[in-house]
Design a protein around this nucleic acid. Structure first.
Length: 577
RNA sequence: GCUCACGUAGCUCAGCGGAUAGAGCACUUGCCUCCGGAGCAAGGGGUCGCAGGUUCAAUUCCUGCCGUGAGCGCCA
């Protein structure tokens, strides 16, 4: 138990419930006028038909002695109860939190298996900024959910099947397998795809070959499958390079491409048919979930099998649901997918529930996100007007970070600089993506994200590096101060300790709302409180050895929380920069 | 046309039904006998898109309107 607000809420809850005559939430919130405030009395007063301040007083009377954790309780304004913790309570809680590997973060009381579907690039197509958000947000959620004890299954639903593969395989044959592998291997996926597309549109002969090839692919022709595997292998090798550069958790083990569900598509149709949900409409087999209409206000179908007998993505998404629930045993399914797909996913969920594949207490959640915009507030494009290649964007981030470090810290060795530049550059890109509410579009701005001022990754990383530097200079191992219970004589020390204890709630807010930006806001506040503390409280030049160790303990705690918080976002914290 | 999301300071964004709406950047002013100034302290700047409603209390919840973006049957 770390967050003191939760501790005090638990202590006040019985008193509130006693006064209310029913279970009653004290509604404890952070306060500008105290460490916290309990707002529960106002709502309760209305219910009981009494003055709010009287209710507050009754609650305090019923609460009994709280002096072990609270230095003062004051009824203020219309009926708020302002709460101030004792210094000793905060100090002891801080020491307790720091004695655990979880840094005081509560583990889940409902740990279960969660599938997170994210990234999902297409084979033989370039990864672009659109994949950035899914990959970065998904990865952060995976890390946070794992941290609190869930079993998280990463699923990278790559686009490795469908009609485009006819033309892609024929193009592969034209080029010769080795040449094609080389071209894909060096990462020119866009070129490859565009050439294939060009031939498909420009040549009837090629188009015919491509269509025949799709039939052979779907028919399981071994030679065709071998060529297809080459395409997939070279593409995923390229994806892995990008993932490695981006520093995300995804590996080949997480690949669950569309092709993996081929054998499950027919069962989807059969089970929907058996359930009596399948209908024929304009030659296609469809399900009409309730509440969805098209532009003519007619029922909107989810197409299970097309008029030509083929399947499309709705079918494979349903197969995914079945697979994730029945084979993997997941109870929560998260889809980190752009917001334009909201309706599609709602329909998939609706059909899955109608069919009974997704029990009521199972969660299927669309973790939607907005677009990446340029400074013109339109979808981010390269100078030439093309979509921006993710790989080149990441390279540019590292280049820019390298220049920045070379300027700010010229004495750093070249090897160190390369490593640190990677952490800073990639961290900056990830943080700028994660630090605003994911549902909104966000504006991509190199100068802002790489700035060492403001709410940016470099600023947070700097705060961390600075603390590491203090310990180097002090020639004291971080571990040696970890059993120290800090003294909190100065307001800045106290504020910092209280902030450290709120890491618990920050982590849980991020998880409960699936919103990494909550963690970003917290870490920025932590960094601000730290720099303020550091400015006002001498650490190495403290008046006494005891005070120095106490302040070093606060430094260590700050650095640990900062490093762990950034780690939950998938961002590294260098020891110097 | 219908549906969904967004609209908060000049700019980029926080804001969990609660007290005088907050940061950062930019701007103004202090602090370089300073443990990394990549900083700290302070100041100016807002009819929270508009109008209703619910509530003791609305930037927050509901409805309508306006603006912006997106989606709306055989692409994924």
């Amino acid at each position: 138990m770390a967050d003191p607000l939760i501790s005090v809420a638990e202590r006040l809850a019985p008193a509130f419930s006693h006064v209310a005559g029913r279970p009653c939430d004290p509604v404890v919130r952070p306060s500008e006028r105290a460490d916290a405030q309990a707002n529960g009395a106002l709502a309760l007063a209305k219910e009981l038909g009494v003055q709010p301040r009287d209710v507050a007083q009754k609650v305090l009377d019923a609460a009994g002695d709280l002096s072990d954790i609270l230095a003062s309780t004051e009824i203020a304004g219309p009926g708020f109860i302002n709460l101030v913790f004792t210094d000793s309570f905060i100090a002891q809680q801080t020491a307790d939190a720091m004695s655990s590997a979880q840094l005081g973060v509560r583990t889940s009381t409902d740990a279960h298996k969660i599938v997170v579907d994210y990234s999902a690039p297409n084979v033989a197509k370039e990864m672009h900024v659109g994949h950035l958000r899914s990959t970065v947000i998904g990865d952060a959620l995976v890390r946070a959910l794992s941290f609190v004890g869930h079993t998280v299954v990463r699923e990278n639903h790559i686009g490795d099947w469908g009609t485009p593969f006819g033309m892609l395989i024929e193009h592969l044959i034209d080029l010769g397998e080795e040449n094609a592998a080389h071209e894909l291997g060096v990462g020119d996926l866009d070129g490859f795809y565009k050439q294939a597309r060009g031939k498909f549109e420009g040549s009837d002969e090629f188009k015919t070959r491509a269509r025949n090839r799709v039939v052979m692919l779907q028919g399981g022709d071994e030679e065709t499958l071998a060529l297809w595997r080459t395409l997939v292998k070279e593409s995923t090798r390229y994806f892995n390079k990008v993932y490695s550069q981006l520093d995300v958790l995804l590996t080949d083990d997480d690949l669950m491409g569309e092709s993996a569900y081929n054998d499950l598509l027919l069962p989807v149709v059969e089970r929907l048919h058996t359930a009596g949900l399948l209908q024929e409409s304009d030659g296609a087999e469809v399900v009409f979930p309730e509440g969805f209409t098209n532009r003519d206000n007619e029922p909107l179908p989810l197409i299970i099998r097309k008029g030509d007998g083929g399947y499309n993505y709705a079918t494979s998404d349903l197969a995914c649901v079945i697979d994730r629930v029945e084979r993997i045993g997941a109870r929560t399914l998260l889809y980190v997918v752009g917001s334009p797909q909201a309706q599609h996913l709602q329909m998939v969920e609706a059909v899955a529930r109608m069919a009974g594949w997704l029990p009521e207490n199972y969660v299927m959640n669309h973790v939607a996100f907005g677009s990446v915009l340029g400074s013109d507030r339109k979808m981010l494009k390269s100078r030439a007007g093309d979509t921006v290649k993710l790989a080149s964007l990441l390279d540019e981030a590292v280049e820019r970070a390298t220049l920045a470090i070379a300027e700010k810290n010229p004495s750093m060795s070249h090897e160190d600089r390369a490593q640190v530049a990677h952490m800073i550059g990639i961290g900056a890109v990830k943080y700028s993506d994660l630090s605003t509410d994911r549902i909104k579009d966000y504006i991509f701005d190199w100068d802002r994200m790489l700035s060492f001022e403001g709410n940016t990754a470099p600023y947070l990383q700097y705060a961390h590096a600075r603390i590491c530097s203090i310990f180097r200079r002090a020639e004291i191992h971080r571990e040696t101060v970890r059993s120290v219970v800090p003294t909190l004589a100065d307001l800045k020390e106290r504020a910092l300790a209280l902030r450290i204890l709120r890491f618990d709630s920050a982590t849980w807010e991020m998880i409960d709302t699936l919103s990494p930006h909550k963690m970003c806001t917290y870490l920025f506040d932590l960094a601000s409180d730290f720099t303020s503390f550091y400015e006002h409280c001498s650490v190495l030049k403290a008046e006494s050895e005891e005070l120095k160790m106490s302040r070093l303990a606060l430094c260590d705690a700050t650095a640990r929380v900062m490093e762990q918080g950034l780690a939950l976002l998938g961002i590294r914290a260098p020891e110097q920069m």
